[in-house]
Simulated assay, not measured.
Amino acid sequence: MSLDIDKPSRLLFAIAEALRSAGLGLKVGGRQDFDGTFDQAWILIAIERNAPGERANDGRIAHVLTLSLQVIVSPTLDNPGLAACDLAAVLKGWVTDNRWGLSGSQCDLPMNIDALPSTLISGSQEYLAWTLSFTQTIYLGALLLDDPLGIPKFARTWEVSNIDDPDQYTELEG
């Protein structure tokens, strides 16, 4: 059963929950959660951007989110930068084609998946890391095809002054 989402942060929480339950042995959180302990590797999740996109076929507003998963491993490893690179590669394969348990009508597949070396500075400590970034479009808001009674409606762009105004839509003829 997929979850309905009503705000962009729900995608972030769905990704975090999916990563925690994936059995990869990772600590998952935001940058504020990082405490510098390394009994497991860290994945720090953030929404970096919320750009516009094309509305869904049902009229929901598109939010093209740019997300980042920063991979941080113990600095005591022989080569922490390469270890983070390897873990980012595993995550890249896992992110591909993942909707995180969300409905396909509200969440597209990830796109533009890319991984780059990065650095995390926490206090006076610097950590070698890798950041996996991708875009994922989610669709939020009311369905413009339905009014509260569920009557299908439509509008022609050349006949209305504002296609985003549901009051300018008219009932479909049955």
Score class of each variant (00 low, 15 high):
residue 84 A to G: 12
residue 124 S to A: 14
residue 118 S to L: 05
residue 101 G to D: 09
residue 92 K to F: 12
residue 96 T to M: 14
residue 137 T to I: 02
residue 90 V to D: 09
residue 123 G to T: 00
residue 108 D to Q: 14
residue 118 S to R: 07
residue 123 G to Q: 00
residue 140 L to P: 05
residue 95 V to K: 09
residue 112 N to Q: 11
residue 124 S to G: 11
residue 124 S to K: 12
residue 102 L to S: 00
residue 106 Q to L: 12
residue 114 D to K: 13
residue 88 A to M: 11
residue 93 G to F: 10
residue 132 L to D: 02
residue 130 W to E: 15
residue 109 L to R: 12
residue 115 A to K: 11
residue 88 A to I: 04
residue 105 S to N: 15
residue 94 W to H: 12
residue 92 K to T: 15
residue 135 T to F: 07
residue 97 D to S: 14
residue 120 L to N: 04
residue 138 I to L: 06
residue 136 Q to G: 01
residue 115 A to Y: 11
residue 116 L to I: 08
residue 126 E to K: 10
residue 90 V to R: 10
residue 103 S to M: 15
residue 99 R to H: 08
residue 114 D to P: 09
residue 102 L to Q: 02
residue 110 P to F: 06
residue 100 W to E: 02
residue 85 C to R: 11
residue 121 I to C: 01
residue 88 A to Q: 09
residue 83 A to T: 07
residue 104 G to T: 12
residue 127 Y to V: 06
residue 108 D to H: 14
residue 82 L to N: 14
residue 128 L to C: 07
residue 126 E to N: 06
residue 125 Q to C: 07
residue 136 Q to H: 01
residue 104 G to V: 10
residue 112 N to L: 13
residue 105 S to W: 13
residue 89 A to D: 15
residue 131 T to P: 08
residue 85 C to Y: 13
residue 140 L to V: 01
residue 138 I to G: 03
residue 110 P to G: 10
residue 109 L to S: 06
residue 118 S to Y: 01
residue 112 N to P: 08
residue 123 G to Y: 00
residue 112 N to C: 10
residue 130 W to D: 14
residue 101 G to L: 00
residue 132 L to C: 09
residue 127 Y to I: 06
residue 129 A to R: 11
residue 116 L to D: 09
residue 121 I to D: 00
residue 102 L to W: 01
residue 124 S to F: 10
residue 119 T to H: 02
residue 104 G to A: 12
residue 98 N to Y: 08
residue 87 L to E: 07
residue 136 Q to P: 03
residue 94 W to T: 05
residue 136 Q to W: 00
residue 125 Q to I: 09
residue 120 L to F: 00
residue 82 L to Q: 13
residue 123 G to I: 00
residue 84 A to L: 11
residue 131 T to N: 08
residue 105 S to E: 15
residue 120 L to V: 05
residue 110 P to C: 08
residue 133 S to R: 11
residue 102 L to G: 01
residue 119 T to Q: 06
residue 98 N to Q: 13
residue 134 F to G: 01
residue 137 T to C: 04
